[in-house]
Design a protein around this nucleic acid. Structure first.
Lengths: 191, 191
DNA sequence: AATGTAAACTAATGTCGTTAGTTTGGAGGT
DNA sequence: ACCTCCAAACTAACGACATTAGTTTACATT
């Protein structure tokens, strides 16, 4: 009578990842996940601790996927092409997985106390910092450059995803323009 | 027995604005607003149509406040100092009214069908575009520059607000660095 | 003072996350 | 093949939420 769906944490997160990319982060509900995996909502608590825990799980996955995409994007590229490669990799990932990408934004005050998530986030950050530093930017300027790049890329992705770029000009061209400007700033800060 | 609290739409939105700045956008609930104005939740429906309507009202207020702050920020300034002035005005507003500023982000697909909100948002955008255009940037490049500035500024504010800038280096310095880099890009695009 | 309307109320519905308590499928040992 | 037992499913229930329907009543206008 209770066919015992072969469920585990990963299966729950798989379903959640599909839903969050399809319907948006705000639509991710335990009931929807339960329906997707063929189970009643309370049964999910055998595999995840809460809805927040699902979000945390997706967040961890997102950071790890992004780290992998970053690594793949810069592999074999000369240093002066790497920041652009990282930026476009982010945008590509966000367009492929909008919901998953959105889970990455929330506050560092709350869910990032989870050391696994913090570590995964730091890998992503360290890759970017290394690429910037390899261009000869010294201590403080490197931090400024990294913050600027993160801000610009994540802000662009958020505005684009929310439909705030209504003008007919090419959105990809605008992204390029922005990255070129920041690259120029990085070159100016380098020795 | 029912002392008839002298309530109207603005009073409800006043309370909502306080709550959203104090507790964050996700915590804004009709029950909390009702408690703040001393009324039962259903009574709010005499003044606002729904919680979404409250969000829309705050959004409209936010755009108008930002437009006013932008206008005040650039008044009497030479053209080459105006984009920095706009950027810092945004950051200042976001720090003073984090919840209100957050209501500005959501998708242009949904709540911006409201023509009032669309108009208010376009005022903010037009001010920025005018400042960029006054620097001698031609058609397409002006759109790219505006998109880049919006992305960078809103992204920076979002990351800063979420506590994602953990390094000891000064956050204001990073903001300056970013704006300088984009200004340089704008100058390069100008005739 | 009488009246009509708008603003408050109470009661109820449906969705959500979550907890408690119960049943049972199915793997491991005999 | 049977028993045991645990984990994984279930049902029932609660409290917070938005929202609707229906009712009362404060108070501005006459």
């Amino acid at each position: 009578m209770t066919p015992r769906a072969g469920l585990d944490r990963d299966a729950v997160l798989d379903a959640a990842a599909l839903l969050v990319d399809a319907a948006g982060a705000g639509q991710l509900t335990l009931r929807a996940i339960a329906a997707a995996v063929g189970v009643q909502p309370p049964s999910l608590y055998n595999h995840v601790a809460s809805l927040q825990d699902v979000h945390a799980g997706l967040r961890l996955r997102a950071f790890r996927l992004i780290a992998a995409e970053q690594a793949a994007a810069i592999e074999g590229l000369p240093p002066d092409q790497r920041i652009r490669a990282l930026a476009t990799a982010h945008r590509r990932f966000a367009r492929a997985h909008p919901g998953l990408y959105a889970t990455v934004q929330p506050s560092a005050h709350t869910s990032d106390v989870d050391p696994e998530i913090r570590a995964a986030a730091e890998v992503v950050l360290a890759q970017l910092l290394a690429v910037v530093a390899a261009l000869g930017v010294r201590e403080d300027a490197a931090v400024h450059a990294v913050r600027a790049l993160r801000s610009a890329v994540s802000g662009f992705i958020a505005l684009e995803g929310a439909g705030h770029f209504g003008m007919p000009q090419g959105v990809a061209d605008s992204f390029d323009w922005m990255i070129v400007a920041l690259e120029r700033g990085i070159r100016a800060s380098a020795g």
